[in-house]
Design a protein around this nucleic acid. Structure first.
Lengths: 106, 106
DNA sequence: TCCTGTGCTACAATAAATGTAGCACTACGC
DNA sequence: GCGTAGTGCTACATTTATTGTAGCACAGGA
């Protein structure tokens, strides 16, 4: 855990830092899986097709430092108010994915 | 280039395949940089903080196969109708990133 | 005490990204 | 024609990230 700063944060453009954070493996998926409520770290690993605990823990730490998720003792990990707000941005993604999938088959 | 299928596509849930595709490094950033019009592959590399041509080319191929971008001879890479639609989902991200950045400083 | 589950870590093996260099092709000016 | 500059794209060695397996310490509950 040597590199704490979010990559792209040097540019001074927050959206770049955010895109970099979200562009790391499993990050989007983790936020997505938490959309309906908190999950324990192990449930999260199961939900994410058995992602390795190493990277899962790394992502959880990153997301926690970014203030998007938090560890609720007894309930596992859940979205913060900020994380919930971000997640709402992605809600249309499900509908889009269905449309996208159909177009790809054609 | 051995693994062509989008990871997560086995699950039969398109949103998982989409999240996996978008969760690869530079993918979100590329879509973002194309939001205001086509860019050549080299302009794109410059815009993405000098991403290596290897991974840039890999992402461009993936996004092209996903039908989100296309190569317009003479203009470089641009969003398809589908890609444009997806990108509109991310437009609120900029405003969110500003808010997020401010909260993080506090 | 002995389970079971939690968050989390070590460590070697594998896969992905980087950085540098360069190719083939096209279009332009001379 | 010739050189120059731009395009999309690739090779290859190095560095970094991710995986997979195993396991730790701790906190309940039976």
């Amino acid at each position: 855990m040597k590199k704490r700063a979010v990559r792209g944060s040097r540019t001074g453009r927050p959206v770049m830092a955010l895109l970099d954070l979200l562009g790391r493996r499993w990050t989007l998926r983790i936020l997505w899986e938490l959309r309906e409520g908190p999950l324990t770290s192990r449930a999260l690993r199961t939900a994410c097709d058995g992602a390795s605990p190493t990277v899962m823990q790394t992502r959880l730490t990153e997301l926690r430092e970014a203030g998007l998720i938090e560890l609720l003792p007894g309930d596992g990990y859940g979205l913060t108010a900020l994380g919930l707000e971000l997640n709402e941005t992605f809600l249309p993604l499900h509908r889009f994915a269905e449309r996208w999938s159909k177009q790809m088959q054609a």
